[in-house]
Simulated scan of single mutants.
Amino acid sequence: MAKESMKAREVKRKRLVEKYAAKREELKKAGDSVGLQKLPRNSSKVRMRNRCNLTGRPRGYMRDFGVSRVTFREMVLFGLIPGLTKSSW
């Protein structure tokens, strides 16, 4: 599991991106690079990292389900995701 501080940092980034999205868009259309530089760095969408909603794991993230591959496999094994089963051959 990821440290709680890393999860909190991502939540903070997400809030900043939402807060400054409209202003950032206006500055981009106007071509005002100086104005863009004055905004907080973490308000840029590029700085966000996809993390598992349950564990906070940053790697092996599955966008369709919002969890990491490890958590996804466990959920499938326990039948928590309808319509999916672990295949074996």
Rank of each mutant, 00 (worst) to 15 (best):
K28H: 14
G31C: 04
V67D: 01
S5W: 09
G56Q: 08
A22E: 15
L36H: 05
E74Y: 12
K12F: 14
A8L: 10
A8P: 02
L54Q: 15
D32K: 03
D32V: 01
S88L: 10
R59E: 15
R69G: 07
L16W: 05
E25F: 10
A22F: 11
K28P: 11
V17H: 07
G66F: 07
R47E: 15
F78D: 15
F72C: 06
L54M: 14
R15N: 09
D64K: 14
P58L: 03
D32F: 04
S33Q: 09
Q37Y: 03
L39A: 15
L16V: 12
A22Y: 13
M6E: 10
S87M: 11
N42H: 11
K38W: 00
F78N: 12
E10F: 04
R49W: 09
V17P: 00
R51K: 06
K38S: 09
G66T: 05
L77I: 07
E25V: 05
K38L: 03
K23H: 10
M62Q: 06
K3C: 08
L16N: 07
R47V: 09
K28C: 11
S88V: 12
V76S: 03
L54E: 15
R15S: 05
T55M: 05
W89S: 14
S5Q: 08
S87F: 07
E74A: 01
V34Y: 00
P58W: 01
F72P: 00
C52E: 11
G35S: 04
A2F: 01
A30C: 09
L16D: 11
Q37L: 10
D32Q: 03
R41C: 11
S68I: 00
K45E: 12
A30I: 13
W89P: 15
R57T: 13
A21L: 08
S33G: 08
K3H: 12
E25I: 03
R49V: 15
K3S: 11
F65N: 06
G60T: 15
K45A: 04
F78Y: 13
R51D: 03
T85L: 10
R9D: 09
V67E: 02
V46N: 04
G79K: 02
L36C: 08
N53R: 11
G79T: 00
A21Y: 09
R47I: 06
W89C: 12
R13S: 06
R49C: 15
